[in-house]
Amino acid sequence: MAVPLASKPDNKLVLRQSVLGARRPSNYFWAAATTLGGVGFLLSSLSSYFKVNLLPFSDPTQLVFIPQGVAMGFYGIAGTLLALYLWLIIAWDVGGGYNEFNRETGQLTIFRWGFPGKNRKIEVTHPLTDVQSIRVEIREGLNPRRALYLRIKGKGDIPLTRVGQPIALSELENQGAELARFLAVPLEGL
């Protein structure tokens, strides 16, 4: 998702690419499913202990608290804590940020949000003259990987794409070619 930012449409001095972090639709789905499951198991456990039906769609009061209610309580607490973790990383947008390449200042900035703390903001800047190339990594199979890397002189490779779901091959090629053209560096790995 490369979006040139400029005051005029024909001005190509700044290229800014947004990077999707934890606010992906799949994370929302899994957080909601885990919340429903965890709370459901917890309410089943409490229903079996207090012998009061807390669930509208079933009757867990017939469960024996030890061992069934305890097991459901354990799974309910574990599921609720996992759901809380998922909702927090979505709220903090861990991994989200942008890649900005600015010809006007001669700097590139890679910014990502991390977990709360003193290192919450992760920001890397380099001069554009230190960029050697754009490297594309494509690995298919059981654990596919499709990523763009920025090769910096004396620093190694810096990842530019999001972590998690692989990007479509055509989108990866387009992003890599656009960035290589913008920076006037070679595109490796295709």
Rank of each mutant, 00 (worst) to 15 (best):
A2V: 12
V3S: 15
V3W: 12
V3M: 15
L5G: 15
S7Q: 15
K8M: 14
K8W: 08
K8C: 14
P9V: 10
K12I: 13
L13P: 11
L13D: 14
V14Y: 09
L15G: 03
L15V: 08
R16D: 15
R16M: 13
Q17Y: 10
P25I: 12
Y28T: 13
W30K: 08
W30P: 04
T35K: 07
T35E: 08
G40C: 08
F41L: 11
S45T: 01
S47C: 07
S47A: 06
V52T: 12
L54A: 02
L54W: 04
F57W: 10
D59Y: 02
D59V: 03
T61M: 01
Q62A: 09
F65Y: 11
I66W: 07
G69D: 02
A71L: 15
G73F: 00
G73Y: 01
G73V: 00
T80Q: 02
L84M: 12
W87Q: 04
L88C: 04
L88W: 02
A91E: 12
D93W: 00
V94I: 14
G96F: 03
G97D: 02
F101Q: 00
E104I: 03
G106M: 15
G106R: 11
Q107N: 14
L108W: 05
T109E: 09
G114C: 07
F115Y: 14
P116F: 14
G117M: 12
K118W: 09
N119P: 01
K121Y: 10
I122T: 14
I122E: 14
E123D: 07
V124E: 09
T125E: 10
H126D: 06
P127K: 12
D130C: 09
Q132I: 13
R135C: 04
V136N: 02
V136A: 07
V136L: 10
L142S: 09
N143S: 14
N143P: 01
R146N: 01
R151S: 09
K155F: 09
K155Q: 13
G156E: 03
D157N: 06
D157G: 01
I158V: 08
I158N: 01
L160M: 10
R162C: 09
Q165N: 06
S170M: 13
E171D: 10
E173K: 12
E173D: 07
E173R: 13
E173V: 11
N174Y: 04
Q175V: 02
A177F: 13
L179A: 05
A180E: 00
R181G: 03
V185G: 00
V185L: 03
P186R: 08
P186L: 05
P186S: 09
E188H: 07
